[in-house]
Write a protein that binds this DNA or RNA. Structure first.
Lengths: 213, 213
DNA sequence: CGTGTAAAATAACAAGTGTTACAAAACAGG
DNA sequence: CCTGTTTTGTAACACTTGTTATTTTACACG
């Protein structure tokens, strides 16, 4: 009764995502997606209302991609924050453009909290692990570890970071133990302060742990 | 013998720089610069060969702006890396777009090493200060402190960092002291490894300090 | 007070963008 | 094998971009 569809919306999204993965969102145009998908621009606009709509799809796809990456990342460290940190840093190094899109772009559609496995269950687990190891202030520990991890990841974007995975893991452990030993740490009230921030958000969800708030 | 110039190349650059400061390089077009400068696009192309040329000028201006910002930043910490870190983080918070352009953009024109006061004299001073305080491995100390500082700065770009300057200073000091206490740190050979990287570059210039390399 | 000359304004060009009108093609049902 | 319907391709529109040809303007010197 009608012509058979040959370019599905899935194919369009696949193509756009792959391009975003390689070169970022910036230079993705309707005609270039079409060319790469081997069709005209028409199937794109049949599947998506606008290019902005398609870009939203690419973003969602990137978010899901990161969550898979994180979930499947090999568990290679025994101390808290090892896996979270290694996965995050590796993602930045291996998927530079996707990392940019998700974690350093000017218009973040999802918060870090949402991106970390839809509810930061894993973050909670890491904080709990730190608490179990006798960390006096798991909230401050998380804050500092996360800043450090984020720093290593962002540094890799500009080519200023060139440690191997193994070296990175060793450094993370060293840093974690450094923070663990610190006794006169700043009080949690100084760290977790405003509402709506990453830290307070995670504090809210993890405050049954160690009186972080 | 000829008409008097009314729009100098300086005025064009000022305008473009101010726009980049507010909204980044992305949306700067010849017509918008002209509109804001109150002229047509012609004076722009008389002063600059192309828009790319103008953008290069904006970048240079941003680099100089950062160096001034750093040089004039009040000295408010007594421990090593306090001023470097506070200036860097404050710059990221107060000049978000310029920070992006200089330190996280995909095409960095100048290395971090070049941007830090044309020769990283100040970085050397911080490392020396750490060595003077009995830091067993100033090179590793710099590496870790810088990753942390960079992390805090980058985190502020997405609104995930909301500590005050005072809280930031306290945290930096806490982190510095944590790293100072760590005895079983990773060896410098693990940290400074490849040529041409930030760390090896700084290592080259600072290796008279403490056998960093 | 002209007048040549450099600067600025106007307007155009070519290329590229998102998006859409329209025509061609392909398939399922009769 | 038609035929209708939907998908696809073609081509266009309106707009924006960098850049440049052309015209207008204003000044300094004779």
């Amino acid at each position: 009764m009608a012509r058979k569809e040959s370019i599905s919306s899935r194919m369009v999204l696949d193509t756009a995502f792959e391009m975003a993965r390689e070169e970022g969102l910036k230079n993705i145009t309707a005609r270039r997606v079409a060319e790469r998908a081997g069709c005209s621009t028409q199937p794109i606009f049949r599947s998506f209302q606008s290019m902005e709509d398609l870009m939203d799809g690419v973003y969602e796809r990137a978010a899901a991609f990161f969550q898979d990456f994180y979930a499947l990342y090999p568990k290679l460290g025994e101390f808290p924050f090892a896996n979270l940190g290694m996965a995050y840093i590796s993602f930045a190094r291996e998927e530079r453009e996707l990392f940019r899109m998700l974690f350093v772009s000017a218009e973040p559609k999802k918060s870090l909290y949402e991106l970390l496995n839809g509810g930061a269950e894993n973050v909670k687990a890491e904080i709990q692990a730190a608490a179990a190891q006798g960390c006096p202030d798991p909230g401050a520990m998380f804050t500092k570890m996360w800043i450090f991890i984020h720093g290593a990841a962002c540094m890799s974007l500009t080519g200023d970071y060139d440690l191997s995975d193994q070296e990175t893991l060793k450094m993370l452990e060293s840093v974690y133990r450094s923070f663990l030993k610190e006794r006169e740490s700043i009080s949690p009230q100084d760290i977790v302060r405003q509402e709506g921030s990453l830290f307070s958000e995670l504090g809210d969800h993890g405050n049954e742990l160690g009186g972080t708030k």
